[in-house]
Structure formats: structure tokens, C-alpha cells
Design a protein around this nucleic acid. Structure first.
Lengths: 187, 187
DNA sequence: GTGAAGTTGTGATGTTTGTCACACAAAGAA
DNA sequence: TTCTTTGTGTGACAAACATCACAACTTCAC
């Protein structure tokens, strides 16, 4: 069951069959349809989601009604509103499906129990949190150093498949430019 | 010794005297002068630094020779080039003193040993990594949703003391605008 | 104290990007 | 099918911001 999760975890820490059975018991499985919300602003955030297949976007609506995308979540990604999840506060982000999506759900109580019960998993989540922090810093750097064209090229290089999977309007929301400007980027 | 570090860790996990002595033994202490570099681009990154007093900036120089500031590190902050530190690669960021700065240094070998030897510390670093990830996402969001004036106001609200301590040129490098534009921001 | 380096403000001007408007094509529902 | 929604490109114009140039002031090393 969920060999994909096991392979993903074992990239960082090896697990025995018993250990993986223990880990696995904390997760629940769920399917979402295109456009369905996993998290909506203002709600409690019970779960962090591991994406088995499909595609999610983590976004935020500003006062002017514009939607901004903080992150896309592809296969093998962990995604949630981390602030709300870890501090038991209401969501400020939304998490929505761009495709039919198959996820594993881990509640914050189970996250605590899993970390306390198996140090390997705390180690695993530490590695994940560190790499999440690092990627966010890279994205900050790209806002500081690059214009719209360069940020678009960086996105293309890093996730070439994404362009075939999401409308350009959403790519623009992720890059921080208007869809018209994105449509006019030459290169 | 280093009661400041102890108080900082104990905001998240309580420690016995023996445990803190154990933790403490992994750190070395160092003083840096204003303008000195703790990390320079291209070098190996041996340490993560805990700031006891003073002020650091984590930055990056682009091809055009411009300097961009990813983060300021005040008292009680942990800072390093996390990518280079965790993956044993060469630094792409620089870390430099803006004031005379007193730090505790933790090598990556000692970081591993500390986490392996005391689960509380792995738990502590997990909490820190999560909050680092969360703040970086907030900063990404502010680039997506806010213009220069708004980002400046957010910085003022969050770190009001910073303006008295760093030249505006550096504030501009952090906000991602030219120093002239910053100087003209009305509010 | 003196010169050099760093800091800050401001005008003039050009570039990048956003906004509004419109047209048209593609995809999905009844 | 037909209708509606969604996605995309492009022109015209306005706003935000960068760049260059210059002046004045402060800080600091010698």
C-alpha cells in the first residue's frame, strides 16, 4: 500500500517493513476532482497533503480580489497552509486542485505522534522542511534579481511540463505579472 | 554559559542542565567586526550561526554586480547559506556583518551529532526549519501582492528598529527596489 | 583636521509593466 | 448541436519603477 510514499521517504531514511506499516497507519487516502478545494481561507487546516498524482495550487486572494499563487504542488510534494497547520490557526491560503488529484492526508496530531514515535520520521520531516525553506529562499532571490522574462525562463527550465498542464493565466499569477504581460514576453 | 541560547531553545523544548551542557559543547563562539564576512560566495560553508548580538545580512551578487539581500539576521536568529550547508556545496550567498556581531557556530557534523544524540534538538530544529519556511513564504507573498510602498510599510511594522540600524540603500536591496525609488516613497 | 568614502535626496528621462478594451478560439454543459 | 465559460493575443494608454546625473551631508581613517 502506498509504495510511492515509501519510496519517497526512503530517499532520505531507510525503513523496515514494520516501520513503514507504522508510518502508513497514520495516513488516510483521498481523491479530489478538478477545481475542488482541499483548503479554503478562514477554515481550520487539519491536514498536510502528500500528492500521489495530480496537481495542486497553493494561493492567496488579496483585497482587490486578485489571486496569487505561492506554489504549485506536483507529484511527491507535501503541501498545506503550513502556518495554519502548525499553529492551529485559520487558513490564510487556499489549496485547490488543477487536475483530478490523489493525495495522502496526515493530520497534525498524527504528525506529532509520528515524529514522537519514530525518530527517523522526525529526521525525514526536518530534511523536507529544510529543503522547503531553501526553495522558498531561491524563489525570493528570483524576485530580487530577475525580471518577468527571466523568471518565466527559470520556471520553464525547472518545470517544463507545467506549461502543458496549467493555463497561462495561472503561470502569470505565479510569476507575479499580469497575464497580458506574460503573453507578450518575447523569448 | 550562553544562557541566551538556552532560553532560546527552551521556548520550544525544555532542557535539563545536563542536556544543555551536552548541547552547549557542540558550539563554538566567535566575534566578528563590522563589514567582516562569515560566508563568501564560492567558499565551503562549515557553520550555521546563532546571533547573540549584532546584525548580519544574507545576500547575493548578481552578474550585473548588484547586491540583493535575502534576509537580515538579528539577535536570536539562525543564519547561513542553508543550501550549501546542508548539501556540502559551495556558497552562492554571502553572509556579512552590518554591526560588530557575536555568534555561536555549529558545524554541520555537530548539527548531525546533536540531532542524533538528543531527539529534543532534532525537534527544535524541525520547529525552526518550519518557521523559516513559513516566513519565506510570507515574503514571497508580499512580492506577489504588494508594491514597493506596501512592502516598505510591512518591513517597518515587522522590524521598526531596523531602519535606525541599516542604511537605506540596504533596505532597498532587501525590498527589491532602487535606493532612489525607496527615497521617494511618500508615506 | 583633512581627504576619501559612504549616505541621502531630487530632477530629468526612459523602460517595464499594469489596466482596459476588444476579438476570437477552444472547451465544456445542456 | 448551441450556448456559455474559459483561455489567449494584441492595441492604446497610464502608472510604477529604474537609471543617470548632480549636490549636499555624514562618517571614518590617517
Amino acid at each position: 500500500m502506498h509504495e510511492k510514499l515509501r519510496a519517497h521517504i526512503e530517499k532520505i531514511v531507510p525503513l523496515t517493513d514494520e516501520e513503514f506499516a507504522f508510518v502508513s497507519s497514520y495516513f488516510t487516502e483521498k481523491h479530489y476532482k478538478k477545481r475542488e478545494f482541499l483548503i479554503q481561507r478562514g477554515e481550520n487546516v487539519r491536514y498536510v497533503y502528500f500528492v500521489l498524482s495530480g496537481l495542486l495550487m497553493l494561493g492567496h486572494n488579496d483585497e482587490a480580489g486578485k489571486h496569487h499563487i505561492v506554489s504549485f504542488a506536483l507529484e511527491d510534494w507535501w503541501e498545506t497552509d503550513f502556518l495554519a497547520y502548525h499553529t492551529q490557526t485559520k487558513a490564510t491560503f487556499s489549496l485547490q486542485c488543477l487536475e483530478p488529484t490523489h493525495v495522502l492526508c496526515l493530520s497534525s496530531e498524527n504528525y506529532q505522534k509520528l515524529c514522537a514515535g519514530l525518530q527517523k520520521m522526525e529526521h525525514f520531516f526536518l530534511a523536507k522542511a529544510n529543503s522547503g525553506h531553501i526553495s522558498s529562499q531561491q524563489r525570493i532571490l528570483s524576485f530580487l534579481t530577475s525580471n518577468a522574462t527571466e523568471r518565466y525562463e527559470q520556471l520553464l527550465r525547472r518545470y517544463p511540463a507545467l506549461l502543458q498542464r496549467v493555463p497561462k493565466t495561472l503561470i502569470a499569477s505565479y510569476l507575479g505579472v499580469s497575464r497580458e504581460t506574460l503573453s507578450r514576453l518575447s523569448s
